[in-house]
Simulated assay, not measured.
Amino acid sequence: MNLNLNPLHFYQTTPEELTSNILKGVDHKLQGFVDRFRPSKNEEEELLTIEETLVILKCSNQTLWNWRKEGILPSYRLGNRVYLKRSDIFSKLTKQDFNG
């Protein structure tokens, strides 16, 4: 029986150092997530349909309508169609500011 045991290493650390290290790791993971979904400069002013916006936000049509009505997410009319800017959506997502 071959047990591949690695020796345990114990390090002394203060609660503040542990908290700081955990927060650095979380911050790094969140930054990677934000960078992955950040629109490129060419996509920033891309206009999205309501359907495309619903897919990105993963919300209901009613919720999106409420956000548009309350001015949380600005929308634009071109003819009979309603569009939202990708940059506006991304800005709201990164600020986590859906309360107005």
Rank of each mutant, 00 (worst) to 15 (best):
R81N: 14
N99P: 05
K29R: 11
N2W: 06
E70W: 13
S60W: 06
L73W: 00
G32A: 15
Y11A: 07
S60Y: 11
L8G: 02
H28V: 07
Y76L: 03
S20C: 10
E52D: 06
V55D: 11
N99I: 06
L48C: 02
P7R: 05
Q31F: 14
L8H: 06
Q62H: 12
S40L: 04
S20H: 13
R86H: 07
E16R: 10
V34G: 02
T19Q: 12
I72T: 15
L47F: 15
E45W: 04
N21V: 09
R36G: 11
K58Q: 15
E17Y: 03
E51C: 08
E45K: 07
L93Y: 01
F98S: 00
S60M: 00
D97I: 06
H9L: 14
I72M: 01
G100F: 06
D35G: 02
F33I: 14
T94C: 13
N80G: 09
E45S: 12
S20G: 10
N6K: 13
D35I: 11
G71E: 01
L47W: 11
R68Y: 03
L73N: 01
N61M: 12
P7Q: 04
L93N: 00
F90E: 04
Q31V: 08
Q31W: 14
R68E: 15
D97R: 11
